[in-house]
Design a protein around this nucleic acid. Sequence first.
RNA 1: GGUCCGAUGGCCGAGUGGCUAGGCUCAGCUCUGCAAAAGCUGCUACAGCGGUUCGAAUCCGCUUCGGACCUCCA
Length: 493
Amino acid sequence: MDSLHISNSLTRQKEKFEPLNPPFVGMYVCGPTVYSNVHLGNVRTFLTFDIVYRYLQHLGYKVRYVRNITDVGHLTGDTDDGEDKIGKKARLENLEPMEVVQKYTNDFHDVMDVFNILRPSIEPTATGHIVEQIEAIQKIIDNGYAYEVNGSVYFSVRTFSDDHPYGELSGRKIDELMNNTRDLDGQSEKRDPLDFALWKAADASHLMQWPSPWGRGFPGWHLECSVMSTKYLGEKFDIHGGGMDLKFPHHECEIAQNVGVTGCDCPVNYWMHGNMLTVNGRKMAKSEGNGFTPDELITGNHKLLDKGYSAMTVRFFMLMGHYASTLDFSNEALQAAEKGLSKLEKAVDTLAKLTPSSGEASFDAKEFGAKCAAAMNDDFNTPILIATLFEGVKIINGAAAGLVALTAEDIASLQDTFHAYLREVLGIQAEKNIGEGGGNEGETGALLDLIVDIRTQAKANKEWGTADKIRDVLAAHGITIQDGKDGSSWTRG
RNA sequence: GGUCCGAUGGCCGAGUGGCUAGGCUCAGCUCUGCAAAAGCUGCUACAGCGGUUCGAAUCCGCUUCGGACCUCCA
């Protein structure tokens, strides 16, 4: 495809991407609720939108990327009698709620950094926007779509749906929802089981509470996203993203709230949903007990893992699947990714050292770049992009082996393409322990160079025992010796 | 129970009317003192059953199996 197309969850169609105000693009992504450590499933979603962010920038758009931190309002368990997640954690760990928030926000940021996921332009918090949320609630009440009961305010889905569509995003119909709603315990203040809380009254035992026109309380879960997206991106903006599991009810409620405030029927042009990471075919989730933390993955300290894998390996693994498909997490798949990535990185090293050949060019570097663009233009198809990069690997290795002729221009173009797509768009960083050593590691490097020299000497004298011993011992320390036509070299990893 | 999605070779995973995706694994060969790396070659699949079509992994129907959501979840 020659221009970016995005699968829009709202219309269920692949559509040409046309921003409201080019070259500016507004993108909102639902961030984490910071009451516990993030796991790899969460990472996948943020990685998905990292790719979107990176590629939009690659295309020259000026992106305002807003990704929130939910630090209040997210209830545990069922709708009405649930406890605030942050408040509960604070009580259990005997911490101030804001300590909980800070702790897991730090964790989240650390994990994002490890996976080379870029920070958003704005990272607003729910507690930082209580005033705006109260104002939004008042507007919704004024517009007739919410009602107050005992200091709590609920959104009236039925009333709203008389004037506006509800359930379009998740393909739900009000009547079906009614039939399928589980029985509540009869204690609900809500007029209708479909209604959801905009503001919850808090009694004295609640750790997190604020004054409002309806008494002391705290905002409902969905509201912060509506308020913060509107505040920073406007009443109508380009892209809204999040995990598939947020489609209903979270995003549906978000839309209703936006519309309930502004009356504008379509607050977001393109809805994007990342699919789930699975383990043995089941969604990775805390409730399933199958969640890996990034730390367990990197150290290999988990019963389902044979060994540890680097963050870049995991990033690469995740990008080998399309974001809209479920992706199954397994040792075998991770190992395949590790080897594939290593092959790719080696080829990048080779490319840096390639010398132009005099023969006729037997490779179209321009077409190669276009193919990479086409892959990403087709709904951020990273697996196709990676497959295309591997075609490049074949060309690079072929050139190094003298089978493919590349001009200086071809080589420069390939270097540009690999840098742009592998490093910038896919965000794969060269790992410190992969790649050429030789002089850039200071003392250790100098020692290794010396050892390799000694071995080369031993080989010249046909002292195979010495040569093999050096190779074996270094290998035991994770250093690989490779004998090429132009001498030997060493690499880590 | 309702709604939706999926089933691709030994494994992972793209594709979606005709043209070998790609990665990993495995086997053989080239190179190499032996390896490794790299290259070449081979292994050619689309859950089952019907239908549409000149032609279907791709469209339609049914069946089986799996998953997600419907309750907090990225």
